[in-house]
């Protein structure tokens, strides 16, 4: 119970800090808008197949995540507050606090991305809403799980910005392939049961990553 309170405290600290400094959110929103505009320009009046649109949605989400989710750890490292946190709580608490923060961040960003995507690209019509929403939820969840531990790793390295997508991509590839496939199914109007395999992969992916991150975070977090 105490652990949950402490984790919540780490999250609230990050959340209030984000509200005040807007370290991640401003850049993220602008990033989403820019990327979507580029996609709209490149599509023009073409009739692009739903498969391509499903893929592009996740390309936008992947790169937005890569531009924003590393902030949680990188900002601590840059401001010199990493040791302050190390002196306040055990590593697991910090990890889960940051994970919750990244989850909230990715959920808000993905809500924005999907809303804009649905509004601006009329060809992107979801037939099976249940598959689409579940994919979005589980996909965002897995994305946050993977990118949180990678963010913790790159925060200690030199060229943080470029390293982040490089390290994340191979880790995220199974997730990205799964969500792209599931999104296609939702556009094709497949019944919910057809995407069950995808959902199982997404759930186990997140579970495995949280477990491994939990164990490894101690080694990553301390110098």
């Amino acid at each position: 119970m105490l652990y949950i309170q402490q984790t919540a405290a780490v999250f609230i600290k990050d959340f209030k800090s984000e509200l005040r400094t807007r370290y991640a959110i401003n850049a993220l929103v602008m990033f989403v808008i820019t990327t979507l505009s580029i996609i709209l320009f490149s599509i023009g009046g073409e009739r692009v197949s739903p498969d391509v649109l499903a893929g592009m949605l996740w390309v936008v989400i992947f790169f937005s995540a890569m531009s924003g989710l590393s902030r949680s750890f990188v900002s601590e490292e840059e401001r010199g507050t990493t040791m302050t946190l190390q002196l306040l709580a055990q590593p697991a608490i910090i990890y889960f606090g940051k994970l919750v923060f990244n989850l909230v961040l990715i959920f808000s960003i993905n809500t924005l991305v999907v809303t804009l995507y649905l509004l601006l690209i009329p060809l992107f019509t979801v037939q099976t809403t249940s598959i689409f929403l579940l994919t979005l939820f589980l996909g965002s969840f897995g994305l946050a799980c993977a990118s949180t531990i990678i963010a913790a790793i790159i925060a200690k390295a030199n060229s943080k910005g470029t390293l982040y997508p490089v390290l994340s991509f191979p880790i995220l590839l199974p997730l990205l392939m799964t969500v792209m496939n599931a999104t296609k199914l939702s556009l094709d109007g497949a019944p919910l049961s057809e995407a069950a395999g995808e959902f199982r992969v997404l759930v186990s992916y997140s579970v495995v990553l949280i477990a491994v991150s939990w164990v490894l975070f101690d080694y990553v977090w301390k110098d």
């Binding site: 209030k16 800090s17 302050t84």
Partner: peptide, 24 residues
């Protein structure tokens, strides 16, 4: 220590409050 920093964007009072809460 010189290498331990407080959170710039918060006030002294808020800093202490967060520290207490994170400590549980």
């Amino acid at each position: 220590a010189p290498y331990i920093q407080m959170y710039d964007e918060f006030s002294a009072y808020e800093n202490l409050k967060f520290f207490a809460r994170i400590r549980g």
